[in-house]
Design a protein around this nucleic acid. Structure first.
Lengths: 294, 294
DNA sequence: AGTTACTGTGTATGGCCTACGCGTTTTAGT
DNA sequence: ACTAAAACGCGTAGGCCATACACAGTAACT
């Protein structure tokens, strides 16, 4: 698997191409965004750079995948690429910018969405792909809020979503709102999944009595999958909570037939997806762009 | 405004109260969770502690509200409460635990949800209250994923949601799934809001030519509200993107009547809420617990 | 050639979290 | 009442972290 970071735009001059979409849209951009789109002037006077931003980002991605975002330090990256920490600053303005570049780099590959698949199936694939991306690279969700400006790759995802919605006759801002909503759902859904997996790992770890620093690879994957993600919740309830303080919770649990929480595992991606897409469908119907009735 | 952290449970012994909800639910808990529920044995042998965990958390909250999560360091907190950094470690096991305590402390107050208001209006209030909480304390979303175990206050929110869903005849796990979905939506929605506000502030800041470190208080609030949160997106599109790379996006923009993105401001809370609740409604109807409406 | 800009490096600063050991204070047990 | 144990708050120190700054070397432009 090779992770493609944005290809170097080489000599693209910082002038707008034909057909600008909006009037008055030419304003100052944050420096980071400019760098993202490769607007740097290609001057070459000193020695040819042996290092490049792409290499740095690549090394950072490998580090983050292997050991989490906390392991991504300038020193570690420098070590990985074989240079001194300060060398990185010739290609990246600082750590903040590096994170932004990482954030766009992970979005390099688009999912396969067959043309003519229909808006609902298309949006489902689009959303699922992002959720899986978030689950595969949990550190993405730890990135600071500010690390999400529109980069070339992210915009390509948005373009793809607009492609899916092309047959729907809706103003562009409404489409954007729908796309934004799905993107939000991605954030929440993958966050919950990661958290619940982390809890499961912790649980297995505690049960097997291994020390806290044990790498996940030494644990039984089946045991992790089998672990109840609500275990802590249940335990807390049974041990500390009293019915006076949490009456509704106790009533719901008491009424409940089998009295034990079942893990939905991959099912709850489907659940959230169905609910949200049902909501979108209702919205489209309300806008009159879908035929009435089932 | 006084932020109530969890009141000291004083002498609560770590034994389960009557009516435990689930069988086999008594297992090891992470130490952090135990501390959260005040399971610490009240031994007193040394001098009376002058400092307390509640004080520390309180000071941390004030710091975070005023200067963001980055300003919350052990040293700063110690300074705020008038002790040395190392003194904090007598009351809190480390920074991680402190963040967990903060995370539960912000959920101290429940929203007002009148009884009998109906499931939809009730859930909307419940969700909105959390979104507003997230917007009021943006640093909450920067907390590490692991800082979200079930604390007394968070569980109280869940209990409230179960209260709203009491009249609905649905198994508890389905209710929990719905509640979880709404909680996810909260995460995404407030994150997007914070991000869009941050972008607006940045934009106003750049337009007024002020240096980058200018505090937000010196900026015109009206200008911030008026700022187009999609400005960067538009600019990037018009300046760097070309129609070959992003055909669908360009088509959507070209077709669009007024050709400029309008900020939805508080409206997009409503939009997301409506869509998600429509989805939930469809789910409930599918489960046969709502009358088949018009 | 001389100038200029750019590269990678070494050193140093100031922040962060926290392990460890110390003196002191209070209580439990005798 | 006396002793021993335990908890409190503090000082020091060590190991990370990001990065400002000055420097030596190199390649291109004039």
């Amino acid at each position: 698997m090779s992770i493609n970071t944005t290809p170097e735009p080489a000599e693209q001059p910082p002038v707008p191409p034909g057909q600008p979409p909006g009037p008055g849209a030419t304003r100052e951009l944050p420096a980071v965004v400019q760098r993202l789109w490769g607007a740097a002037a290609p001057r070459r006077r000193g020695p040819k750079p042996a290092l490049s931003a792409a290499q740095i980002v690549q090394a950072a991605l490998v580090l983050a995948d292997a050991e989490g975002l906390a392991a991504v330090s300038m020193a570690r990256i420098a070590d990985a690429v074989g240079y001194t920490p300060m060398a990185l600053y010739r290609h990246v303005s600082g750590k903040e910018e590096l994170l932004v570049l990482m954030s766009d780099a992970v979005a390099a590959e688009l999912p396969d969405i067959p043309a003519g698949i229909g808006w609902r199936a298309g949006l489902e694939r689009w959303t699922r792909a992002q959720i899986e991306l978030g689950i595969a690279r949990p550190w993405m969700l730890e990135l600071p809020l500010s690390a999400a400006p529109p980069g070339p790759n992210r915009v390509r995802w948005i373009d793809q979503a607009f492609g899916v919605l092309r047959p729907i006759d809706l103003p562009a801002d409404a489409k954007l709102a729908v796309i934004g909503l799905l993107a939000q759902h991605v954030l929440g859904e993958s966050r919950v999944h990661i958290e619940s997996r982390r809890a499961a790992v912790q649980q297995v770890l505690r049960e097997s009595g291994l020390p806290d620093g044990t790498p996940e690879s030494e644990l039984d994957p089946a045991a992790i999958d089998a672990a109840n993600p609500y275990a802590d919740f249940e335990t807390v309830l049974s041990r500390y909570a009293d019915p006076t303080m949490y009456p509704n919770l106790f009533e719901a649990f008491a009424t409940w037939p089998d009295n034990s929480l079942i893990a939905h595992s991959e099912d709850d991606i489907a659940f959230g997806m169905a609910v949200v897409l049902d909501g979108v469908e209702a919205f489209l119907r309300r806008c009159g762009v879908l035929p009435d009735g089932p």
